[in-house]
Amino acid sequence: MISVLFAVLTALSNGAASVLQRRAALNVPAGEAMRLSLMGHLLRQKVWLCGIVLVIVAAVCQAVALATGPIAVVQPIFVIELPATLLLAGVVMRVRVPRTVWYGVSAVTVGLAVAMAAAAPVGGRESVPGGDWFPALVVTGLFEAALITAALGSDGNARAALLGLAAACGYALTAALMKDAMAQLDEGGVTGLLTAWQLYATAAAGVGALFLLQNALHAGSLAAVQPMLTLGDALISIAYGVTLFGEELRTGWWLLPQLAGAALIAVGCVVLARSPLAGGNAPPAPRVR
């Protein structure tokens, strides 16, 4: 129950952060794409810094959630981040929530419920045997390289979607490393945590994922980025949970409702990301011809 509560808090923080970071990315010159100077432009914007504060809050909540629950349960809950944030924004700003937003919220909520009920993730170990990390990191690196290469060969929303998926993979890896690092805390206390390579790998993966996300938001619309980010994070995290932590999911005919739930989530994310409450209709930054 604690893991679910903190997963929800993580989703709320991450959803709000994505919207703030997208708005900040619109003010960055197009020529800064895929350069470290992009971060310099963002650091000078208060709206982006507010988003980073929320990212830090989300990281703390995520660590608690992963330390107390299976990764295949915690990470999929994060798909509610966008609908929850939009509804909260409507209440705070006293703006009437459009009917389409409610459709999107319903699609994401029902999709998540169906997918989780069908998958029924259980079991798993708290830590990962050291030797299992090497093939996982190699495969992840190759996948990331392929996505980034494909993104550099495209532009607009296609680039945004590819970089959004690359960022999702980075965040999923960050979650897996974070869960393993928290296990070192349980086993060896603070000393065990501070001497664990997983802690520093978590920081490196998180910074890399953040950099990819900023470039994704800079390349195209939130509607192109959010579904890839949300679903990609959930699905890749589940893959890590099964392969690294030994968590189990239902298979066979149960895959059909799982796929149906994922499709509903994807549709809901697109609808919500296009909402004015998310800034989804704002035009992307100008491209260099």
Score class of each variant (00 low, 15 high):
G123P: 00
G124I: 03
V128H: 01
P129L: 13
A136Q: 06
V138Y: 09
V139E: 04
L142S: 11
A146N: 05
T149I: 09
A150S: 13
A150L: 11
N157Q: 04
A161R: 09
G164K: 01
Y171D: 00
A172E: 03
A172P: 00
M178R: 01
K179N: 07
A181Y: 03
M182F: 09
Q184C: 08
T191P: 00
T191H: 15
Y200G: 05
G206D: 03
G206Q: 10
V207E: 05
V207H: 06
V207Y: 12
F211Y: 15
F211A: 08
L213A: 02
Q214W: 12
N215H: 14
A216Y: 08
G220V: 08
G220Q: 07
G220K: 01
L222R: 02
V225N: 07
P227H: 04
M228H: 00
L231F: 07
G232W: 05
G232D: 09
G232F: 06
G232M: 04
G232I: 07
L235Y: 06
A239L: 15
A239P: 04
T243L: 15
T243Q: 10
F245R: 03
T251K: 09
T251C: 00
W253P: 00
L255A: 12
P257F: 06
P257E: 11
Q258K: 03
A260D: 03
